[in-house]
Design a protein around this nucleic acid. Sequence first.
DNA 1: CGGTTGACCAAGT
DNA 2: GACTTGGCCAACC
Length: 99
Amino acid sequence: MKLLDKIYEKLKEVPRGKIVTYKILAESIGTKAYRAVGNIMNKNKYPNKIPCYKVVNSDCSLGCYKLGKREKIKRLRKEGIKIKNNKILNFEKVLYEFK
DNA sequence: CGGTTGACCAAGT
DNA sequence: GACTTGGCCAACC
């Protein structure tokens, strides 16, 4: 199983209304390639299959999104996550931690 | 196989 | 605040 697939698996594991950071996501799959995670997402093969918008930066800013930042915000808000000034509100509350 | 590129991070200036 | 620096590592060329 490739790292790429692990990322998808983990991402699918994130429940509705929760998000993760690139760092946590990377470390949860046993790598420190948090930077590569973003790289992979950008070239991701299943943009509609994977909820990429649930992945944000560690400093609770949004980061980028293949389909646009607007779309990211829109979808996140739809899940009950509040965003202001390009930052996640209640960051720790919506942050999903892998076990 | 080496070099470059990132949807990054943390610490420093 | 904004910017730079050094580090990280998979994917790409």
